[in-house]
Simulated scan of single mutants.
Amino acid sequence: MSIGNLSWRWPWLPVLALVLAMAFGLLAYRKARRGKPDQEPEARVWTLSSDLDTEEGHEALRRWRRLNRCAAILLSLALLMVLSLAARPARVDRTLEQGHNRDIVLCLDVSGSTLPYDRQVIASYLDLVRNFRGERMALSIFNSTSRTVFPLTDDYDMITAELSKARRILDGVQSQDRIDAMSGRQYQDISDWLEGTQNRRDTTSLIGDGLVGCAALLPQFAPKDHSGPAKADQRSSSLILATDNVVSGKPTYTLEEALKLTSAAGITVDGLYSGPDQGTGDESTRQMQRLIEASGGIFLRRQDGNSINALVRRIEHRHGADPRQQEQSSLVDAPGWWTLALALALSGYLLLAWRLKR
C-alpha cells in the first residue's frame, strides 16, 4: 500500500488491530449488558446538580468537559500513530552511487635481496590504499613460491590492518644492526609471515613464477592457451609488481613469458623497483623496465619522490577519470514524522490527564 512516495510494509496490521479492538469492545459491552439487573428496587440516587448549580460550578464543568474531549482526541491520535508505526511506513530511497569496476593485485617480492626494502614498499602500498576507494584489492608475496596474504576484497579496514602488520613485522630487517638486535619473537613473526614462500630448495626469487601466482588471483586469468582477451563486461584489472628482478634458479616462467600471459588475459602490469639504490642501473633493472613498458605498463623506482602519486595518476587515467555511476533504489523505513507525532500526542494526553486529576 502506497501513497505518493510513502508506503506501508504491513498495511494489514492496523486493520487487524481495529477488527480485534471492535470485537473485544462488542464482547465487553454484551457481557456488561448481560450482567446488569433489569430492576433495582428502591435504588437510592445522589446527584451533584444542586452543588454545581452555580456560576462557578458551571464554568468548572465546562472546563472539565473541554479538557476531557481534548484528552480523548489526543489519545485517539496517539493510538492512530501507534497503528501507523506498526504498519511500518517506508519510502523509496534513490541514491546515485559511484563505483570503481576495478581489481588491483599488489605483488611483493620477499626474497633475500629485496626483504630489507620491503617495508618501504609496504608503506607505498598503504599510500595506494589511501588513494583508491571502491576497488577490490589483493596482496600476494612470493620467493620461490607464492602465498596469498589476502584475496581480492574491498574491506579497506582489513587491508590497512594487514599492511600495517606487515610493515611492523618487517621493521627489524631493514639493516644488519636491526637484524642482530631482533628478539626470538620477532624472528618467529617474520618466519610466520613468510611461510609458504620458500617451498623449492636451492631456488629463490622466481620473478616470472611469482607474477603468474599473483595474476592467478584475478578471475579472468588462465595460464597457457586458456587465457583470452578480457570481455567487455569484466572488471578491469591491474597488477603492481614490486621486485628487483634478480632471479636465482630456474623458473617455470620467465618475466617475459609471464607478462605475455597477463597481457593475453587483459591484465595490465605496472612495475615498482624494490632493491638497493646501487642496483637501479643494473641490466636486470633495465630489462624489467623494458619488459614492463613494452607490455603497456609503467615502471617506477621506489626511490623516486613521487613514485606512488605518479602510479596512482597513471592508473586513474588508464581506467578513466570518472567512476561508474549507478542509481540504487531501496525501500527504507521512514518512522521519523510518525514517531514525532506520537510523542507529541502522548505528551499532550499525559499532561491533560494530570490536569484532569487535579
Rank of each mutant, 00 (worst) to 15 (best):
K224R: 10
P37T: 07
D51E: 13
R102A: 03
N5G: 08
S237R: 14
L79Y: 08
E283S: 08
A265C: 06
D157S: 13
C107K: 04
R102G: 04
R94H: 11
G134T: 06
A294W: 02
G271W: 09
L346Y: 02
K36N: 05
F150C: 00
L170A: 04
P251D: 07
L128S: 07
I73N: 00
W337A: 15
H317K: 13
R94L: 08
S236R: 10
G279C: 08
A216W: 01
M81G: 03
R185I: 12
D282A: 15
Y156W: 00
D209N: 10
S175I: 07
G57R: 04
D322C: 01
L350R: 01
A294Q: 14
I73H: 03
F299L: 11
T262I: 09
Q287Y: 06
D53Q: 10
G35A: 09
V105P: 07
R290L: 06
I179N: 04
K250N: 15
E293G: 14
E316H: 11
R30M: 06
H100L: 15
A343P: 00
S84E: 08
T339P: 02
L67P: 04
L194R: 12
R66M: 09
V247E: 12
L291W: 15
R286P: 02
T203F: 03
L351K: 01
